[in-house]
Protein backbone atom coordinates (compact mmCIF):
# COMPACT_ATOMS: atom_id res chain seq x y z
CA UNK A 1 0.00 0.00 0.00
CA UNK A 2 2.81 2.40 0.94
CA UNK A 3 4.69 1.40 -2.20
CA UNK A 4 1.66 2.11 -4.35
CA UNK A 5 1.01 5.47 -2.67
CA UNK A 6 4.61 6.55 -3.06
CA UNK A 7 4.60 5.51 -6.71
CA UNK A 8 1.39 7.48 -7.28
CA UNK A 9 2.92 10.50 -5.53
CA UNK A 10 6.05 10.24 -7.67
CA UNK A 11 4.03 10.06 -10.90
CA UNK A 12 1.90 13.02 -9.80
CA UNK A 13 4.93 15.14 -8.92
CA UNK A 14 6.63 14.36 -12.23
CA UNK A 15 3.42 15.08 -14.16
CA UNK A 16 2.86 18.46 -12.46
CA UNK A 17 6.53 19.38 -12.73
CA UNK A 18 6.79 18.59 -16.42
CA UNK A 19 3.51 20.37 -17.17
CA UNK A 20 4.50 23.52 -15.28
CA UNK A 21 8.01 23.58 -16.73
CA UNK A 22 6.88 23.13 -20.32
CA UNK A 23 4.12 25.73 -20.09
CA UNK A 24 6.06 28.37 -18.10
CA UNK A 25 9.45 28.32 -19.75
CA UNK A 26 8.90 27.86 -23.44
CA UNK A 27 11.80 28.33 -25.76
CA UNK A 28 11.16 29.35 -29.32
CA UNK A 29 13.68 28.13 -31.86
CA UNK A 30 14.49 30.10 -34.97
CA UNK A 31 11.91 29.24 -37.63
CA UNK A 32 13.76 28.45 -40.79
CA UNK A 33 12.24 25.42 -42.56
CA UNK A 34 8.91 26.07 -40.88
CA UNK A 35 8.48 29.57 -42.30
CA UNK A 36 9.59 28.56 -45.76
CA UNK A 37 7.21 25.60 -45.90
CA UNK A 38 4.22 27.52 -44.54
CA UNK A 39 4.74 30.32 -47.03
CA UNK A 40 5.56 28.34 -50.14
CA UNK A 41 3.88 24.95 -49.89
CA UNK A 42 0.89 25.98 -51.97
CA UNK A 43 3.02 27.26 -54.83
CA UNK A 44 5.45 24.35 -54.70
CA UNK A 45 3.10 21.40 -54.45
CA UNK A 46 -0.43 22.67 -55.25
CA UNK A 47 -1.70 21.08 -52.04
CA UNK A 48 -4.12 22.93 -49.78
CA UNK A 49 -3.07 20.99 -46.71
CA UNK A 50 0.42 21.62 -45.43
CA UNK A 51 0.70 18.17 -43.86
CA UNK A 52 -0.07 16.47 -47.17
CA UNK A 53 2.46 18.71 -48.90
CA UNK A 54 5.18 17.80 -46.42
CA UNK A 55 4.37 14.08 -46.36
CA UNK A 56 4.03 13.60 -50.11
CA UNK A 57 6.44 16.13 -51.53
CA UNK A 58 9.01 17.69 -49.21
CA UNK A 59 9.57 14.54 -47.15
CA UNK A 60 8.79 11.81 -49.63
CA UNK A 61 11.64 9.54 -48.52
CA UNK A 62 10.11 9.47 -45.05
CA UNK A 63 6.79 8.22 -46.41
CA UNK A 64 8.43 5.65 -48.67
CA UNK A 65 10.42 4.05 -45.89
CA UNK A 66 7.44 4.21 -43.54
CA UNK A 67 5.53 2.06 -46.03
CA UNK A 68 8.54 -0.25 -46.18
CA UNK A 69 8.54 -0.56 -42.38
CA UNK A 70 4.87 -1.59 -42.45
CA UNK A 71 5.69 -4.32 -44.97
CA UNK A 72 8.56 -5.53 -42.78
CA UNK A 73 6.27 -5.72 -39.76
CA UNK A 74 3.70 -7.72 -41.72
CA UNK A 75 6.36 -10.14 -42.96
CA UNK A 76 7.52 -10.71 -39.39
CA UNK A 77 3.95 -11.27 -38.27
CA UNK A 78 3.39 -13.81 -41.05
CA UNK A 79 6.53 -15.59 -39.99
CA UNK A 80 5.65 -15.93 -36.33
CA UNK A 81 1.85 -16.32 -36.31
CA UNK A 82 0.87 -19.44 -38.23
CA UNK A 83 -2.75 -19.17 -39.24
CA UNK A 84 -5.19 -22.07 -39.41
CA UNK A 85 -4.85 -24.22 -42.49
CA UNK A 86 -1.22 -23.43 -43.13
CA UNK A 87 0.26 -25.08 -40.08
CA UNK A 88 -1.07 -28.43 -38.94
CA UNK A 89 1.76 -29.92 -36.97
CA UNK A 90 1.08 -31.88 -33.81
CA UNK A 91 -2.67 -31.52 -33.68
CA UNK A 92 -3.47 -35.19 -33.14
CA UNK A 93 -0.93 -35.67 -30.39
CA UNK A 94 -2.48 -33.22 -27.95
CA UNK A 95 -2.55 -34.61 -24.46
CA UNK A 96 -1.48 -38.10 -25.48
CA UNK A 97 2.25 -37.69 -25.06
CA UNK A 98 2.12 -35.17 -22.24
CA UNK A 99 0.82 -36.37 -18.93
CA UNK A 100 0.72 -33.34 -16.67
CA UNK A 101 1.97 -29.92 -17.51
CA UNK A 102 3.57 -28.38 -14.53
CA UNK A 103 3.79 -24.96 -16.17
CA UNK A 104 0.93 -22.53 -16.08
CA UNK A 105 -1.10 -22.41 -19.23
CA UNK A 106 -2.01 -18.81 -20.01
CA UNK A 107 -5.72 -18.22 -19.82
CA UNK A 108 -8.23 -15.55 -19.14
CA UNK A 109 -9.23 -15.13 -15.53
Amino acid sequence: MIRMASAALFVLVVFVGVTVLTTRYQEKLEPTMYEYMVENFQRDTAAHNAVAAILLNYRMYDTMFEALILLTAIIGMKQFLPSAGEFTGGKSGRGADTTDWSGDSPKQG
Partner: peptide
Protein backbone atom coordinates in the same frame (compact mmCIF):
# COMPACT_ATOMS: atom_id res chain seq x y z
CA UNK B 1 -19.18 -28.34 -26.56
CA UNK B 2 -16.02 -26.31 -25.91
CA UNK B 3 -15.41 -25.99 -29.65
CA UNK B 4 -18.95 -24.70 -30.22
CA UNK B 5 -18.46 -22.10 -27.46
CA UNK B 6 -15.08 -21.08 -28.95
CA UNK B 7 -13.15 -22.24 -25.93
CA UNK B 8 -9.97 -24.05 -26.53
CA UNK B 9 -10.21 -27.33 -24.61
CA UNK B 10 -7.05 -28.56 -22.98
CA UNK B 11 -7.22 -31.96 -21.36
CA UNK B 12 -4.76 -32.60 -18.56
CA UNK B 13 -4.17 -36.07 -17.19
CA UNK B 14 -3.17 -35.88 -13.59
CA UNK B 15 -2.40 -38.33 -10.85
Amino acid sequence: FCMSREFEPEIVFSS
